[in-house]
């Protein structure tokens, strides 16, 4: 039997700031399968972003484990972690985080270039077309609207066909129409590309597309709702 795509086992995260301890995450356990969308909901400071960082192997639990396809992230070397981010994980941010110096096409192409992949440009074109921005390939981020920037960011996050897509408030900075478009793309990512989508959100509409909604408060999971 295959291990879950992404699993958190009693993961906790404690930060030390100026000699004081801050428990951002406490004893969280979660299992996510391919092709699913999981939404983390809760107020600001409830631990959503911390959980996303653990899931995306950008950070490591103070106790407990985070396993990607059965392998604990804290057991991976720096090179293995880099390879993981290049090949298996994609990130989408609230504030898009496109590189202002690169065109839309170059931004999408970037993960493949960093990985030294072949046909980077062609693949990037395809992704950009998929998100409906084929004509904006040579535009710079400051020439795109918020919605267009976020769609380009999703194209970038999916250009290397990752197993896991981590999205932090993907519609938080968008109007309703753009937000709808973005949510549609996330649904496609899970359905068409088989990605495991883990999304933090305040938006009810965003939470509605998820098959699993995880309610968080003060670093703990207080409820899990499946539809």
């Amino acid at each position: 039997m295959n291990p879950p795509r992404l699993e958190l086992r009693r993961a906790s995260k404690v930060y030390q700031t100026n000699g004081q301890k801050l428990e951002a995450l406490h004893d969280v356990s979660l299992m996510l399968e391919p092709g699913t969308i999981t939404a983390l909901v809760g107020r600001s400071g409830c631990g959503k972003t911390t959980l996303l960082n653990l899931a995306g192997a950008m950070d490591f639990p103070t106790s407990g484990e985070v396993l990607i396809s059965g392998r604990a992230t804290s057991s991976l070397s720096e090179e293995e972690l880099t390879a993981l981010r290049r090949n298996r994980i994609g990130f989408v941010f609230q504030f898009f985080q496109l590189l202002p110096a690169l065109t839309a096409l170059e931004n999408v192409e970037l993960p493949l270039l960093l990985a030294g992949a072949a046909r980077a440009r062609d693949t990037a074109h395809e992704r950009l077309e998929w998100v409906g921005l084929g004509e904006k390939a040579d535009s710079f981020p400051h020439q795109l609207s918020g919605g267009q920037m976020q769609r380009a960011a999703i194209a970038r996050a999916l250009v290397h066909s990752p197993d896991i897509l981590v999205a932090d408030e993907p519609t938080g900075n968008l109007d309703n129409a753009s937000g709808e478009q973005v949510l549609g793309l996330l649904r496609d990512a899970a359905g068409r590309f088989g990605a495991t989508v883990l999304m933090a959100t305040h938006s009810a509409e965003a939470a509605a597309i998820a098959s699993t909604r995880v309610q968080m408060r003060d670093g703990r999971i207080c409820a899990v709702e499946r539809s």
Partner: peptide, 16 residues
């Protein structure tokens, strides 16, 4: 610095 942080998220190694 945010740009460099992002590059790490995208899979850039520190050496890159």
């Amino acid at each position: 610095r945010r740009e460099f942080g992002l590059l790490r998220y995208l899979g850039a190694a520190p050496a890159q």
